[in-house]
Amino acid sequence: MAESALITVADVARELATQVTGGEALQTPVTGAQVCDLLSHVMARGREGQVWITIQTHPNIVAVAALARLSAIVLAHGMQPEEETVMRAEDEGIPLLLSEDSAYTLAGRLYLLGVR
């Protein structure tokens, strides 16, 4: 547990992301992760510090991440965020990590990284 507590958004970004945009809170500890494209589910089940893997790209994902106090959003499958999404992510301090990998692969790599 002591080891996993040391994983930060910056570690996840280095491991998974081809590009990082949006907010700059990269030193936030990562407490877990979830893979989901239904916003209500993330709002209800999201826990502080989690990384959220999704293929949704519209600005509302930033509102959900901020309200649920998630540490970062990972956009899977090469999905590109909308311009407004990046602006809101900057405002709210939520990092957006972009990856070509599938949500399935990203979840596996996060798990191996020690995010449990």
Partner: peptide, 27 residues
């Protein structure tokens, strides 16, 4: 206005913080 969704809730969250409401209730 899908793209504005969450703005009001973010404002509510901010004023509750300013009013000293506990984190669990704010959440």
């Amino acid at each position: 206005a899908y793209f504005l969704g969450g703005r009001a809730s973010t404002s509510v969250k901010r004023v509750l913080g300013e009013a000293g409401v506990d984190e669990g209730t704010i959440q």
